[in-house]
């Protein structure tokens, strides 16, 4: 097997993995702030996909403007969800599990009723391929991957430099201490949930032209996001990026040897191995 083939397989894996990292970052941000796992996260991803379908594919707005709109719309939906149903569930893992499951069903059934059950195709915004050193990548996938990286960097800067971003990290570290320092926990939780959902919405907008938009489209990315955050360590942002790269690499290479259905088992085996060696994930703290 030539080394070019291996590098090409890795590249294929990494490209999509960066978008799944976006979904995972939202999930892990919400977990670190509210200490709950949001199983309806994939449905916010789906919402981003539908915004893209209606605004970009049907109304013809610019692709990137649509992306921003998808991020904002889904972010607002996230804030509303937090205010209405999640704000009392901080740290109540089992109850939050059931509630987010209920939300998942409500959103999926709602999407079926509102948008129909059929797949909606979204046309590609870019055509052509790029060739570098014998490697091939479509312009579309390149743009999607780069946009995902831009959003990851933007999130990093937001959490490092901005006041609300730093408040989120403070709440994630110690909610009581943060409250004592004058951080408004309620506002930060709502905003954090909104930002987390907005990231999923952005990912949904990015992948809408690659895969068709449908009410059940959130299931696959959310499973990948779970694998990514367990491998990387729950609540850790660098861990999510590392976990995404690992998953992308393993699945990209695995696709050379086995069918696409069987490749899915690799991610779960990776989860088991990582949790055995490092129970808190690769970058997880104490």
């Amino acid at each position: 097997m030539s080394s070019e083939l291996l590098v090409q397989a890795l590249l294929n894996g990494f490209g999509l993995a960066m978008v799944y990292v976006l979904v995972a970052l939202g999930l892990t941000l919400i977990f670190s702030i509210l200490e709950i796992i949001n199983f309806a996260h994939g449905e916010f991803y789906m919402l981003g996909g539908y915004v893209t379908y209606y605004v970009y594919a049907l109304s013809g707005l610019n692709y990137f403007a649509t992306l921003v709109l998808a991020i904002l719309t889904v972010g607002v939906a996230g804030v509303v969800a937090e205010r209405l149903i999640f704000h009392d569930l901080r740290g109540k893992a089992l109850n939050a599990f059931i509630v987010s499951l209920g939300l998942l069903w409500v959103m999926q059934a709602g999407a079926q009723l509102a948008f129909g059950v059929l797949d909606k195709p979204v046309p590609s915004a870019f055509s052509g391929v790029v060739r570098v050193l014998g490697l091939v990548m479509s312009v579309e996938r390149l743009v999607v991957t780069l946009s995902a990286i831009v959003l990851i960097v933007a999130l990093y800067l937001f959490l490092r430099l901005s006041r609300p971003g730093r408040a989120m990290r403070a709440v994630a570290q110690d909610p009581d201490a943060a409250a004592l320092q004058g951080v408004n926990i309620d506002a930060v939780s709502a905003l954090g949930f909104g930002v987390g959902c907005a990231l999923a919405g952005g990912a949904g907008g990015l992948l809408a032209p690659l895969f068709a938009v449908s009410p059940a489209m959130g299931a696959l990315p959310v499973v990948k996001a779970f694998i990514i955050i367990i491998v990387g360590g729950m609540g850790s942002l660098p861990g999510a990026v590392l976990g995404g790269l690992l998953l992308g690499g393993v699945e990209g290479l695995g696709a050379l040897f086995m069918g696409s259905a069987a490749v899915n088992i690799l991610g779960f085996l990776m989860v088991i191995v990582v949790l055995l060696v490092r129970p808190r994930g690769l970058v997880g703290g104490a």
């Binding site: 149903i85 509630v99 499951l101 209920g102 939300l103 069903w105 409500v106 999926q108 059934a109």
Partner: peptide, 12 residues
Amino acid sequence: HYEILVFGAVLI
């Protein structure tokens, strides 16, 4: 069609 919708709402 409304089965899952209502079921989810009941859970919440």
